[in-house]
Design a protein around this nucleic acid. Structure first.
Lengths: 259, 259
DNA sequence: GCGTCATGGTTCATTATTTGAACCGATGGT
DNA sequence: ACCATCGGTTCAAATAATGAACCATGACGC
Protein backbone atom coordinates (compact mmCIF):
# COMPACT_ATOMS: atom_id res chain seq x y z
CA UNK A 1 0.00 0.00 0.00
CA UNK A 2 1.38 3.39 -1.01
CA UNK A 3 1.83 6.50 1.03
CA UNK A 4 -1.23 8.15 -0.46
CA UNK A 5 -3.54 5.32 0.55
CA UNK A 6 -2.13 5.27 4.05
CA UNK A 7 -2.91 8.95 4.41
CA UNK A 8 -6.38 8.69 2.89
CA UNK A 9 -7.31 5.76 5.10
CA UNK A 10 -6.73 7.98 8.11
CA UNK A 11 -9.85 9.88 7.04
CA UNK A 12 -11.92 6.72 7.39
CA UNK A 13 -11.54 6.73 11.15
CA UNK A 14 -13.82 9.75 11.30
CA UNK A 15 -17.50 9.12 11.84
CA UNK A 16 -20.54 10.79 13.34
CA UNK A 17 -19.65 9.71 16.86
CA UNK A 18 -15.89 9.99 16.36
CA UNK A 19 -15.65 13.41 14.83
CA UNK A 20 -12.42 14.54 16.48
CA UNK A 21 -9.35 12.33 16.63
CA UNK A 22 -5.97 13.05 18.20
CA UNK A 23 -2.49 12.10 16.98
CA UNK A 24 -2.02 9.19 19.38
CA UNK A 25 -5.50 7.87 18.67
CA UNK A 26 -4.66 7.81 14.96
CA UNK A 27 -1.45 6.02 15.83
CA UNK A 28 -3.35 3.31 17.69
CA UNK A 29 -6.08 2.97 15.03
CA UNK A 30 -3.71 2.78 12.09
CA UNK A 31 -0.78 0.97 13.65
CA UNK A 32 1.59 3.37 11.87
CA UNK A 33 4.55 5.16 13.37
CA UNK A 34 3.70 8.37 15.17
CA UNK A 35 6.01 10.52 13.03
CA UNK A 36 4.48 9.03 9.90
CA UNK A 37 0.95 9.70 11.06
CA UNK A 38 1.84 13.22 12.06
CA UNK A 39 3.34 14.06 8.69
CA UNK A 40 0.37 12.56 6.90
CA UNK A 41 -1.99 14.60 9.04
CA UNK A 42 0.02 17.75 8.26
CA UNK A 43 -0.30 17.13 4.55
CA UNK A 44 -4.01 16.41 4.80
CA UNK A 45 -4.40 19.59 6.83
CA UNK A 46 -2.48 21.81 4.42
CA UNK A 47 -4.87 20.65 1.72
CA UNK A 48 -7.97 21.35 3.78
CA UNK A 49 -8.99 17.70 4.13
CA UNK A 50 -8.73 17.97 7.89
CA UNK A 51 -8.37 20.84 10.31
CA UNK A 52 -7.20 21.04 13.88
CA UNK A 53 -9.17 22.12 16.91
CA UNK A 54 -6.87 24.75 18.36
CA UNK A 55 -7.94 23.99 21.93
CA UNK A 56 -7.95 20.20 22.05
CA UNK A 57 -5.29 19.78 19.31
CA UNK A 58 -7.48 17.05 17.88
CA UNK A 59 -8.23 16.80 14.19
CA UNK A 60 -11.57 16.90 12.40
CA UNK A 61 -12.58 16.63 8.74
CA UNK A 62 -11.89 19.77 6.72
CA UNK A 63 -13.87 22.07 4.44
CA UNK A 64 -12.26 20.97 1.16
CA UNK A 65 -14.45 17.90 1.31
CA UNK A 66 -17.56 20.05 1.03
CA UNK A 67 -16.54 21.57 -2.26
CA UNK A 68 -15.46 18.28 -3.78
CA UNK A 69 -18.67 16.59 -2.67
CA UNK A 70 -20.67 19.44 -4.21
CA UNK A 71 -18.90 19.00 -7.54
CA UNK A 72 -19.38 15.25 -7.41
CA UNK A 73 -23.09 15.51 -6.68
CA UNK A 74 -23.72 18.13 -9.32
CA UNK A 75 -21.81 16.34 -12.04
CA UNK A 76 -22.63 12.75 -11.17
CA UNK A 77 -26.00 12.56 -9.47
CA UNK A 78 -25.71 9.01 -8.19
CA UNK A 79 -28.78 9.46 -6.05
CA UNK A 80 -31.02 10.12 -9.03
CA UNK A 81 -29.66 7.13 -10.94
CA UNK A 82 -30.09 4.78 -8.03
CA UNK A 83 -33.56 6.01 -7.17
CA UNK A 84 -34.87 4.57 -10.43
CA UNK A 85 -33.77 1.06 -9.52
CA UNK A 86 -34.89 1.37 -5.90
CA UNK A 87 -38.33 2.64 -6.94
CA UNK A 88 -38.70 -0.20 -9.43
CA UNK A 89 -37.99 -2.94 -6.89
CA UNK A 90 -40.01 -1.28 -4.18
CA UNK A 91 -43.01 -1.48 -6.54
CA UNK A 92 -42.18 -4.99 -7.70
CA UNK A 93 -41.73 -6.40 -4.19
CA UNK A 94 -44.24 -4.13 -2.52
CA UNK A 95 -41.95 -3.30 0.38
CA UNK A 96 -39.44 -0.72 1.57
CA UNK A 97 -36.17 -0.82 -0.36
CA UNK A 98 -33.08 1.29 0.36
CA UNK A 99 -29.52 1.71 -0.87
CA UNK A 100 -26.96 2.61 1.77
CA UNK A 101 -23.26 3.36 1.45
CA UNK A 102 -20.51 2.55 3.90
CA UNK A 103 -19.70 5.61 5.91
CA UNK A 104 -16.46 4.69 7.67
CA UNK A 105 -18.21 3.09 10.60
CA UNK A 106 -21.90 2.89 9.74
CA UNK A 107 -24.12 2.37 6.74
CA UNK A 108 -25.32 5.72 5.47
CA UNK A 109 -28.71 5.68 3.68
CA UNK A 110 -28.49 7.21 0.21
CA UNK A 111 -32.06 6.69 -0.97
CA UNK A 112 -35.13 4.72 0.07
CA UNK A 113 -38.63 4.08 -1.26
CA UNK A 114 -41.73 2.38 0.09
CA UNK A 115 -44.21 2.77 -2.73
CA UNK A 116 -46.89 0.18 -2.04
CA UNK A 117 -49.30 1.12 0.71
CA UNK A 118 -49.72 -1.32 3.60
CA UNK A 119 -51.50 -1.20 6.92
CA UNK A 120 -48.20 -1.54 8.73
CA UNK A 121 -45.03 0.13 7.58
CA UNK A 122 -41.39 -0.05 8.48
CA UNK A 123 -40.21 3.24 9.89
CA UNK A 124 -37.14 4.43 8.00
CA UNK A 125 -35.20 7.60 8.74
CA UNK A 126 -32.90 8.52 5.87
CA UNK A 127 -30.85 10.74 8.13
CA UNK A 128 -30.12 8.01 10.62
CA UNK A 129 -26.97 5.92 10.35
CA UNK A 130 -27.37 2.15 10.43
CA UNK A 131 -25.09 0.13 12.73
CA UNK A 132 -22.98 -2.56 11.08
CA UNK A 133 -23.70 -5.41 13.49
CA UNK A 134 -27.43 -4.86 13.87
CA UNK A 135 -28.74 -4.49 10.31
CA UNK A 136 -28.74 -6.68 7.22
CA UNK A 137 -27.06 -3.85 5.29
CA UNK A 138 -24.27 -3.76 7.83
CA UNK A 139 -23.82 -7.53 7.81
CA UNK A 140 -23.69 -7.67 4.01
CA UNK A 141 -21.10 -4.88 4.05
CA UNK A 142 -19.05 -6.67 6.71
CA UNK A 143 -19.12 -9.83 4.62
CA UNK A 144 -18.17 -8.25 1.29
CA UNK A 145 -16.49 -4.96 2.19
CA UNK A 146 -13.08 -6.37 3.11
CA UNK A 147 -11.48 -7.59 6.31
CA UNK A 148 -10.55 -4.08 7.56
CA UNK A 149 -14.17 -3.08 8.07
CA UNK A 150 -14.99 -6.25 10.00
CA UNK A 151 -11.88 -5.79 12.13
CA UNK A 152 -12.79 -2.18 12.90
CA UNK A 153 -16.33 -3.19 13.85
CA UNK A 154 -15.13 -5.99 16.11
CA UNK A 155 -12.76 -3.56 17.84
CA UNK A 156 -15.67 -1.46 19.06
CA UNK A 157 -18.40 -2.43 21.54
CA UNK A 158 -21.50 -3.98 19.95
CA UNK A 159 -24.41 -1.90 21.16
CA UNK A 160 -27.60 -3.84 21.90
CA UNK A 161 -30.70 -2.31 20.29
CA UNK A 162 -33.17 -5.14 20.88
CA UNK A 163 -33.12 -8.50 22.63
CA UNK A 164 -32.04 -10.08 19.36
CA UNK A 165 -29.14 -7.77 18.42
CA UNK A 166 -25.92 -9.68 17.81
CA UNK A 167 -23.88 -8.51 20.75
CA UNK A 168 -21.01 -10.98 20.97
CA UNK A 169 -18.05 -11.07 18.65
CA UNK A 170 -18.48 -14.79 18.05
CA UNK A 171 -22.14 -14.43 17.02
CA UNK A 172 -21.31 -11.55 14.68
CA UNK A 173 -18.44 -13.43 13.05
CA UNK A 174 -20.71 -16.42 12.54
CA UNK A 175 -23.41 -14.31 10.87
CA UNK A 176 -20.87 -12.60 8.62
CA UNK A 177 -19.46 -15.98 7.63
CA UNK A 178 -22.97 -17.20 6.80
CA UNK A 179 -23.64 -14.08 4.71
CA UNK A 180 -20.40 -14.67 2.85
CA UNK A 181 -21.43 -18.24 2.08
CA UNK A 182 -24.97 -17.37 1.02
CA UNK A 183 -24.16 -14.21 -0.91
CA UNK A 184 -26.63 -12.10 1.04
CA UNK A 185 -27.31 -11.09 4.64
CA UNK A 186 -30.50 -11.22 6.65
CA UNK A 187 -31.34 -9.76 10.00
CA UNK A 188 -34.39 -10.28 12.16
CA UNK A 189 -35.18 -7.62 14.75
CA UNK A 190 -31.53 -6.65 15.13
CA UNK A 191 -32.17 -2.91 15.10
CA UNK A 192 -35.92 -2.45 15.42
CA UNK A 193 -38.43 -4.86 16.86
CA UNK A 194 -40.78 -6.62 14.44
CA UNK A 195 -38.62 -5.65 11.46
CA UNK A 196 -36.97 -8.20 9.20
CA UNK A 197 -34.48 -7.26 6.48
CA UNK A 198 -32.33 -8.78 3.76
CA UNK A 199 -29.42 -7.10 1.99
CA UNK A 200 -27.08 -7.78 -0.90
CA UNK A 201 -23.81 -6.01 -1.63
CA UNK A 202 -23.41 -3.31 -4.27
CA UNK A 203 -20.16 -2.89 -6.15
CA UNK A 204 -18.67 0.09 -7.94
CA UNK A 205 -15.87 -0.02 -10.51
CA UNK A 206 -12.91 -2.27 -9.70
CA UNK A 207 -15.17 -4.71 -7.86
CA UNK A 208 -15.06 -2.80 -4.64
CA UNK A 209 -18.09 -3.14 -2.37
CA UNK A 210 -19.23 0.35 -1.44
CA UNK A 211 -22.67 -0.33 -0.04
CA UNK A 212 -25.77 -2.44 -0.10
CA UNK A 213 -29.31 -2.62 -1.35
CA UNK A 214 -31.75 -3.88 1.23
CA UNK A 215 -35.40 -4.61 1.80
CA UNK A 216 -37.11 -4.17 5.15
CA UNK A 217 -40.56 -5.47 6.05
CA UNK A 218 -42.65 -6.25 9.13
CA UNK A 219 -42.00 -9.78 10.39
CA UNK A 220 -45.73 -10.41 10.17
CA UNK A 221 -45.62 -10.26 6.35
CA UNK A 222 -42.70 -12.69 6.07
CA UNK A 223 -43.34 -16.13 4.56
CA UNK A 224 -40.99 -18.62 2.95
CA UNK A 225 -42.25 -17.75 -0.50
CA UNK A 226 -41.86 -14.00 -0.07
CA UNK A 227 -38.37 -14.51 1.32
CA UNK A 228 -37.31 -16.58 -1.68
CA UNK A 229 -38.85 -14.02 -4.02
CA UNK A 230 -37.08 -11.18 -2.25
CA UNK A 231 -33.70 -12.89 -2.43
CA UNK A 232 -34.07 -13.57 -6.15
CA UNK A 233 -35.03 -9.97 -6.84
CA UNK A 234 -32.42 -8.42 -4.57
CA UNK A 235 -29.72 -10.21 -6.55
CA UNK A 236 -31.08 -8.61 -9.72
CA UNK A 237 -31.41 -5.22 -8.04
CA UNK A 238 -27.87 -5.46 -6.74
CA UNK A 239 -26.59 -6.18 -10.22
CA UNK A 240 -28.52 -3.24 -11.66
CA UNK A 241 -27.38 -0.79 -9.01
CA UNK A 242 -23.78 -1.93 -9.39
CA UNK A 243 -24.04 -1.43 -13.13
CA UNK A 244 -25.49 2.04 -12.59
CA UNK A 245 -22.45 2.84 -10.49
CA UNK A 246 -20.11 1.62 -13.18
CA UNK A 247 -19.33 -1.59 -11.34
CA UNK A 248 -20.35 -5.22 -11.47
CA UNK A 249 -20.88 -8.18 -9.17
CA UNK A 250 -17.63 -10.15 -8.76
CA UNK A 251 -17.75 -13.49 -10.54
CA UNK A 252 -17.24 -15.35 -7.26
CA UNK A 253 -20.51 -13.96 -5.97
CA UNK A 254 -22.32 -14.48 -9.28
CA UNK A 255 -21.39 -18.17 -9.08
CA UNK A 256 -22.52 -18.28 -5.47
CA UNK A 257 -25.88 -16.81 -6.41
CA UNK A 258 -26.34 -19.24 -9.31
CA UNK A 259 -26.21 -22.27 -7.00
CA UNK B 1 5.78 19.09 -1.33
CA UNK B 2 5.09 15.51 -0.38
CA UNK B 3 3.52 12.76 -2.41
CA UNK B 4 0.24 13.04 -0.56
CA UNK B 5 -0.20 16.71 -1.42
CA UNK B 6 0.64 16.08 -5.04
CA UNK B 7 -2.07 13.45 -5.21
CA UNK B 8 -4.65 15.54 -3.37
CA UNK B 9 -4.02 18.56 -5.56
CA UNK B 10 -5.05 16.48 -8.56
CA UNK B 11 -8.58 16.57 -7.13
CA UNK B 12 -8.61 20.36 -7.38
CA UNK B 13 -8.66 20.22 -11.16
CA UNK B 14 -12.23 18.95 -11.02
CA UNK B 15 -14.98 21.52 -11.22
CA UNK B 16 -18.58 21.77 -12.38
CA UNK B 17 -17.56 22.35 -15.97
CA UNK B 18 -14.57 20.01 -15.82
CA UNK B 19 -16.10 16.96 -14.24
CA UNK B 20 -14.21 14.28 -16.12
CA UNK B 21 -10.47 14.45 -16.64
CA UNK B 22 -8.22 12.02 -18.50
CA UNK B 23 -4.70 10.91 -17.67
CA UNK B 24 -2.96 13.11 -20.19
CA UNK B 25 -5.03 16.13 -19.20
CA UNK B 26 -3.94 15.63 -15.60
CA UNK B 27 -0.38 15.38 -16.84
CA UNK B 28 -0.65 18.74 -18.59
CA UNK B 29 -2.47 20.46 -15.69
CA UNK B 30 -0.11 19.24 -13.00
CA UNK B 31 3.16 19.19 -14.92
CA UNK B 32 3.98 15.84 -13.30
CA UNK B 33 5.27 12.77 -15.05
CA UNK B 34 2.62 10.61 -16.63
CA UNK B 35 3.56 7.49 -14.68
CA UNK B 36 3.46 9.47 -11.45
CA UNK B 37 0.05 10.89 -12.21
CA UNK B 38 -1.23 7.48 -13.18
CA UNK B 39 -0.13 5.85 -9.95
CA UNK B 40 -1.56 8.69 -7.90
CA UNK B 41 -4.86 8.35 -9.72
CA UNK B 42 -4.85 4.61 -9.02
CA UNK B 43 -4.39 5.20 -5.33
CA UNK B 44 -7.09 7.85 -5.24
CA UNK B 45 -9.37 5.47 -7.09
CA UNK B 46 -8.76 2.52 -4.78
CA UNK B 47 -9.86 4.75 -1.93
CA UNK B 48 -13.01 5.93 -3.64
CA UNK B 49 -11.88 9.53 -4.06
CA UNK B 50 -12.15 9.23 -7.80
CA UNK B 51 -13.63 6.66 -10.13
CA UNK B 52 -13.15 5.91 -13.76
CA UNK B 53 -15.66 6.11 -16.56
CA UNK B 54 -15.24 2.67 -18.08
CA UNK B 55 -16.09 3.93 -21.57
CA UNK B 56 -14.10 7.14 -21.84
CA UNK B 57 -11.38 6.01 -19.40
CA UNK B 58 -11.59 9.46 -17.87
CA UNK B 59 -11.71 10.02 -14.15
CA UNK B 60 -14.37 11.73 -12.07
CA UNK B 61 -14.72 12.45 -8.35
CA UNK B 62 -15.69 9.42 -6.25
CA UNK B 63 -18.40 8.56 -3.73
CA UNK B 64 -16.12 8.56 -0.69
CA UNK B 65 -16.28 12.33 -0.81
CA UNK B 66 -20.03 12.29 -0.25
CA UNK B 67 -19.61 10.26 2.88
CA UNK B 68 -16.81 12.39 4.30
CA UNK B 69 -18.65 15.61 3.51
CA UNK B 70 -21.74 14.25 5.25
CA UNK B 71 -19.77 13.43 8.38
CA UNK B 72 -18.13 16.85 8.29
CA UNK B 73 -21.42 18.72 7.92
CA UNK B 74 -23.23 16.62 10.53
CA UNK B 75 -20.51 17.02 13.13
CA UNK B 76 -19.41 20.54 12.24
CA UNK B 77 -22.30 22.20 10.43
CA UNK B 78 -20.48 25.27 9.19
CA UNK B 79 -22.28 25.45 5.86
CA UNK B 80 -25.76 25.57 7.33
CA UNK B 81 -24.75 28.15 9.92
CA UNK B 82 -23.08 30.39 7.38
CA UNK B 83 -25.85 30.11 4.81
CA UNK B 84 -28.17 31.98 7.15
CA UNK B 85 -25.87 35.00 7.26
CA UNK B 86 -25.11 34.89 3.54
CA UNK B 87 -28.79 34.70 2.64
CA UNK B 88 -29.54 37.63 4.92
CA UNK B 89 -26.96 39.92 3.36
CA UNK B 90 -27.74 38.80 -0.16
CA UNK B 91 -31.33 39.97 0.46
CA UNK B 92 -30.26 43.13 2.24
CA UNK B 93 -27.77 44.21 -0.43
CA UNK B 94 -29.63 42.69 -3.36
CA UNK B 95 -26.54 41.13 -4.85
CA UNK B 96 -24.57 37.88 -4.93
CA UNK B 97 -22.83 37.15 -1.64
CA UNK B 98 -20.50 34.21 -0.98
CA UNK B 99 -18.29 32.83 1.76
CA UNK B 100 -15.11 31.11 0.59
CA UNK B 101 -12.43 29.35 2.60
CA UNK B 102 -8.71 29.16 2.02
CA UNK B 103 -7.85 25.81 0.57
CA UNK B 104 -4.04 25.73 0.68
CA UNK B 105 -3.62 27.49 -2.65
CA UNK B 106 -7.02 28.81 -3.74
CA UNK B 107 -10.20 30.17 -2.25
CA UNK B 108 -12.82 27.44 -2.12
CA UNK B 109 -16.46 28.58 -2.23
CA UNK B 110 -18.44 27.25 0.72
CA UNK B 111 -21.83 28.79 0.05
CA UNK B 112 -23.30 31.50 -2.13
CA UNK B 113 -26.64 33.18 -2.58
CA UNK B 114 -28.06 35.64 -5.10
CA UNK B 115 -31.59 36.08 -3.89
CA UNK B 116 -32.75 39.28 -5.52
CA UNK B 117 -33.63 38.96 -9.19
CA UNK B 118 -31.87 41.27 -11.63
CA UNK B 119 -31.73 41.50 -15.40
CA UNK B 120 -28.01 40.83 -15.31
CA UNK B 121 -26.43 38.38 -12.93
CA UNK B 122 -22.93 37.49 -11.92
CA UNK B 123 -22.20 33.93 -12.93
CA UNK B 124 -20.92 32.06 -9.89
CA UNK B 125 -19.84 28.45 -9.94
CA UNK B 126 -19.68 26.99 -6.45
CA UNK B 127 -17.53 24.12 -7.63
CA UNK B 128 -14.82 26.34 -9.09
CA UNK B 129 -11.75 27.41 -7.12
CA UNK B 130 -11.03 31.14 -7.01
CA UNK B 131 -7.46 32.32 -7.71
CA UNK B 132 -5.79 34.36 -4.97
CA UNK B 133 -4.43 37.17 -7.11
CA UNK B 134 -7.46 37.73 -9.32
CA UNK B 135 -10.40 37.93 -6.90
CA UNK B 136 -11.32 40.17 -3.99
CA UNK B 137 -11.67 37.07 -1.80
CA UNK B 138 -8.15 36.04 -2.66
CA UNK B 139 -6.74 39.52 -2.03
CA UNK B 140 -8.46 39.79 1.34
CA UNK B 141 -7.09 36.39 2.29
CA UNK B 142 -3.58 37.37 1.17
CA UNK B 143 -3.81 40.52 3.28
CA UNK B 144 -5.11 38.93 6.47
CA UNK B 145 -4.16 35.26 6.20
CA UNK B 146 -0.51 35.60 7.16
CA UNK B 147 2.73 36.16 5.26
CA UNK B 148 3.18 32.51 4.27
CA UNK B 149 0.17 32.50 2.00
CA UNK B 150 1.28 35.67 0.21
CA UNK B 151 4.77 34.25 -0.19
CA UNK B 152 3.45 30.99 -1.65
CA UNK B 153 1.23 32.91 -4.08
CA UNK B 154 4.09 35.14 -5.20
CA UNK B 155 6.24 32.06 -5.86
CA UNK B 156 3.86 30.84 -8.54
CA UNK B 157 3.10 32.43 -11.92
CA UNK B 158 0.18 34.89 -11.85
CA UNK B 159 -2.20 33.69 -14.52
CA UNK B 160 -3.94 36.42 -16.48
CA UNK B 161 -7.70 35.93 -16.73
CA UNK B 162 -8.65 39.33 -18.16
CA UNK B 163 -6.83 42.42 -19.31
CA UNK B 164 -7.13 43.78 -15.77
CA UNK B 165 -5.83 40.79 -13.79
CA UNK B 166 -2.94 41.69 -11.50
CA UNK B 167 -0.14 39.86 -13.20
CA UNK B 168 3.01 41.38 -11.75
CA UNK B 169 4.35 40.72 -8.30
CA UNK B 170 4.71 44.44 -7.60
CA UNK B 171 1.10 45.19 -8.49
CA UNK B 172 -0.15 42.31 -6.37
CA UNK B 173 1.91 43.36 -3.36
CA UNK B 174 0.60 46.88 -3.69
CA UNK B 175 -3.03 45.74 -3.78
CA UNK B 176 -2.51 43.47 -0.78
CA UNK B 177 -0.91 46.36 1.12
CA UNK B 178 -3.87 48.57 0.28
CA UNK B 179 -6.33 45.89 1.43
CA UNK B 180 -4.41 45.61 4.69
CA UNK B 181 -4.69 49.36 5.22
CA UNK B 182 -8.36 49.61 4.32
CA UNK B 183 -9.51 46.45 6.08
CA UNK B 184 -11.15 45.04 2.96
CA UNK B 185 -10.21 44.07 -0.59
CA UNK B 186 -11.80 45.05 -3.86
CA UNK B 187 -11.24 43.74 -7.33
CA UNK B 188 -12.53 45.03 -10.63
CA UNK B 189 -12.62 42.57 -13.55
CA UNK B 190 -9.70 40.57 -12.19
CA UNK B 191 -11.28 37.20 -12.88
CA UNK B 192 -14.34 37.83 -15.02
CA UNK B 193 -15.03 40.79 -17.24
CA UNK B 194 -17.67 43.27 -16.11
CA UNK B 195 -17.63 41.87 -12.57
CA UNK B 196 -16.69 43.93 -9.52
CA UNK B 197 -16.25 42.46 -6.07
CA UNK B 198 -15.42 43.41 -2.50
CA UNK B 199 -14.35 41.04 0.27
CA UNK B 200 -13.67 41.14 4.00
CA UNK B 201 -11.81 38.52 6.06
CA UNK B 202 -13.51 35.94 8.26
CA UNK B 203 -11.87 34.67 11.45
CA UNK B 204 -12.32 31.49 13.44
CA UNK B 205 -11.22 30.88 17.04
CA UNK B 206 -7.78 32.21 18.04
CA UNK B 207 -8.11 35.06 15.55
CA UNK B 208 -6.96 33.04 12.58
CA UNK B 209 -8.25 34.15 9.19
CA UNK B 210 -9.66 31.11 7.41
CA UNK B 211 -11.62 32.70 4.60
CA UNK B 212 -13.66 35.63 3.36
CA UNK B 213 -17.13 36.90 2.75
CA UNK B 214 -17.54 38.71 -0.53
CA UNK B 215 -20.05 40.42 -2.74
CA UNK B 216 -19.93 40.33 -6.52
CA UNK B 217 -21.96 42.52 -8.87
CA UNK B 218 -21.94 43.71 -12.46
CA UNK B 219 -19.80 46.83 -12.87
CA UNK B 220 -22.82 48.51 -14.43
CA UNK B 221 -24.66 48.50 -11.09
CA UNK B 222 -21.75 50.00 -9.13
CA UNK B 223 -22.05 53.54 -7.78
CA UNK B 224 -20.24 55.33 -4.98
CA UNK B 225 -23.24 55.02 -2.68
CA UNK B 226 -23.71 51.30 -3.28
CA UNK B 227 -20.01 50.73 -2.74
CA UNK B 228 -20.08 52.55 0.60
CA UNK B 229 -23.20 50.66 1.63
CA UNK B 230 -21.65 47.34 0.66
CA UNK B 231 -18.49 48.00 2.65
CA UNK B 232 -20.46 48.93 5.75
CA UNK B 233 -22.57 45.80 5.50
CA UNK B 234 -19.72 43.45 4.65
CA UNK B 235 -18.00 44.48 7.87
CA UNK B 236 -21.13 43.50 9.77
CA UNK B 237 -21.49 40.26 7.81
CA UNK B 238 -17.85 39.39 8.44
CA UNK B 239 -18.35 39.89 12.16
CA UNK B 240 -21.43 37.69 12.15
CA UNK B 241 -19.84 34.90 10.16
CA UNK B 242 -16.75 34.95 12.38
CA UNK B 243 -18.96 34.74 15.45
CA UNK B 244 -20.78 31.80 13.92
CA UNK B 245 -17.44 30.03 13.51
CA UNK B 246 -16.49 30.67 17.13
CA UNK B 247 -14.11 33.48 16.22
CA UNK B 248 -14.06 37.25 16.23
CA UNK B 249 -12.58 40.12 14.26
CA UNK B 250 -9.15 41.07 15.70
CA UNK B 251 -9.24 44.41 17.51
CA UNK B 252 -6.66 45.88 15.10
CA UNK B 253 -9.11 45.41 12.23
CA UNK B 254 -12.11 46.59 14.26
CA UNK B 255 -10.24 49.84 14.90
CA UNK B 256 -9.34 50.11 11.23
CA UNK B 257 -12.98 49.68 10.27
CA UNK B 258 -14.12 52.28 12.79
CA UNK B 259 -12.07 55.02 11.16
C1' DG C 1 6.26 21.34 44.90
C1' DC C 2 7.80 17.08 42.68
C1' DG C 3 7.67 13.01 39.92
C1' DT C 4 5.06 10.49 36.54
C1' DC C 5 2.46 9.74 32.68
C1' DA C 6 0.45 10.82 28.34
C1' DT C 7 0.04 14.06 24.93
C1' DG C 8 1.65 16.62 20.48
C1' DG C 9 5.52 17.53 17.99
C1' DT C 10 10.67 17.08 16.05
C1' DT C 11 15.08 15.11 14.42
C1' DC C 12 18.28 12.48 11.31
C1' DA C 13 20.48 8.41 9.51
C1' DT C 14 18.69 4.43 7.12
C1' DT C 15 15.86 2.43 3.82
C1' DA C 16 12.28 1.66 0.86
C1' DT C 17 9.34 3.97 -2.15
C1' DT C 18 8.53 7.15 -5.59
C1' DT C 19 9.98 8.73 -9.86
C1' DG C 20 10.60 9.36 -15.05
C1' DA C 21 12.44 8.09 -19.71
C1' DA C 22 11.37 4.91 -22.68
C1' DC C 23 8.26 1.52 -24.22
C1' DC C 24 3.78 -1.06 -25.44
C1' DG C 25 -0.72 -1.81 -27.46
C1' DA C 26 -5.07 0.18 -28.91
C1' DT C 27 -7.76 3.58 -31.12
C1' DG C 28 -9.03 7.18 -34.35
C1' DG C 29 -8.25 10.43 -37.92
C1' DT C 30 -5.99 11.53 -42.61
C1' DA D 1 -0.87 2.47 -44.25
C1' DC D 2 0.61 5.93 -41.67
C1' DC D 3 0.92 9.09 -37.78
C1' DA D 4 -0.65 11.07 -33.53
C1' DT D 5 -2.63 10.41 -29.26
C1' DC D 6 -4.55 7.95 -25.78
C1' DG D 7 -4.17 4.88 -21.36
C1' DG D 8 -1.18 1.99 -19.29
C1' DT D 9 3.59 -0.51 -17.99
C1' DT D 10 8.56 -1.26 -16.95
C1' DC D 11 12.98 -0.92 -14.28
C1' DA D 12 17.16 1.41 -12.84
C1' DA D 13 18.19 5.65 -10.41
C1' DA D 14 17.13 9.06 -7.12
C1' DT D 15 14.40 11.03 -4.00
C1' DA D 16 11.26 11.01 -0.36
C1' DA D 17 9.16 8.21 3.39
C1' DT D 18 10.25 6.01 7.54
C1' DG D 19 10.99 4.98 12.67
C1' DA D 20 13.64 4.99 17.01
C1' DA D 21 14.77 8.19 20.04
C1' DC D 22 14.22 12.67 21.71
C1' DC D 23 11.99 17.24 23.42
C1' DA D 24 8.32 20.24 25.49
C1' DT D 25 4.14 20.69 27.69
C1' DG D 26 0.20 19.90 30.57
C1' DA D 27 -2.66 16.94 33.70
C1' DC D 28 -2.71 14.16 37.61
C1' DG D 29 -1.58 12.00 42.13
C1' DC D 30 1.01 12.36 46.22
Amino acid sequence: MGTISKALKLLNYFSIDQCEIGLSEFQVFSGLNKATVYRHLCELQSNGFIEQNVDSKKYRLGPSLLRLATVREQTFPMKVAISIVVDKYSRKLGELVHVSLFDGAFMSPLYHADLQPHGTRVYFNEGELLPMHATSSGLAMLAFGGADILKATLDKPLKKFTGRTLSTRAALKKQVQQSLERGFASCSEGFEKEVFSIATPVFEGSQKCIGTIAIALPLSRLTNETEANIITNLKLASTEVSKTLGGSIPTSIVELWAQ
